[in-house]
Computed example of a mutant assay.
Amino acid sequence: MALIKKRLNRSLPVSLMLFLFLALFGAFMALPLVYAVNNAFKPLDELFIFPPRFFVRNPTLDNFFDLAAVMGDSWVPLSRYFFNTIVITLFGTVGHIILASMAAYPLAKYKFPGSSAIFRVVVLSLMFSPHVTAIPNYMVMSRLGWIDTHLSLIVPAMAFPLGLFLMKQFMEQLPDAMLEAAKIDGASEYRIFWKIVMPNVKPAWLTLLILQFPVLWGTNGGDFVYSEELKTLNYALQQIILGGIARAGVGAAVALILMVVPITLFIISQSNVIQTMSSSGMKD
Rank of each mutant, 00 (worst) to 15 (best):
M282Q: 14
A157T: 15
A252T: 02
V201R: 01
M171F: 05
F170D: 03
T93K: 05
E172F: 01
N200K: 03
R80C: 04
F19L: 08
F21H: 05
L3T: 08
Q212K: 12
L258W: 01
A108N: 14
A134E: 12
S280N: 04
F224W: 14
K42G: 02
F165L: 01
L61I: 11
F213S: 14
L61F: 12
F19K: 06
P156G: 04
I86Q: 03
L144Q: 09
V250F: 04
M127Y: 10
T133E: 10
D62W: 07
L12R: 11
S129C: 11
D176T: 12
L16P: 13
V260Q: 00
N84V: 06
S278N: 11
L265K: 02
P156I: 08
L44S: 15
I88F: 04
G95P: 15
A68K: 14
P203E: 00
V140L: 07
T60E: 01
T264F: 15
T264G: 15
L153D: 05
Y105V: 09
N200Q: 08
K111W: 14
L209Y: 03
V94T: 05
F213R: 13
L153A: 09
F41R: 03
V76I: 15
E189C: 03
L61T: 12
L208Q: 06
K283H: 12
H96K: 03
S11Q: 04
M167I: 00
S278C: 11
L44A: 14
S227I: 05
I147C: 09
E189A: 03
T93A: 09
M17F: 13
W205L: 06
F82E: 11
I245C: 06
V155H: 02
F193S: 08
I135Y: 00
L126I: 09
L78Q: 06
G95V: 09
M282F: 13
W205E: 02
G218N: 12
I241L: 03
V34I: 13
N137G: 14
F48I: 15
K202N: 07
G145Y: 14
F119K: 00
F64Y: 06
N200C: 05
L144T: 09
H150L: 08
G145M: 14
L209G: 01
R191E: 10
G244W: 12
A182K: 07
M102A: 08
V14A: 15
V260P: 04
N200F: 04
A255L: 14
Y81P: 08
T60L: 03
P77S: 02
G249D: 01
L3N: 09
I241G: 01
N220M: 14
F91K: 02
N234Y: 03
D284L: 11
I118S: 15
K183L: 13
T89N: 02
P43M: 00
F112M: 15
M127H: 08
P161C: 02
F55H: 10
Q169I: 08
V225L: 11
R120P: 01
L8D: 12
L107N: 02
R247W: 10
F213V: 15
L208D: 04
G145S: 14
S188A: 11
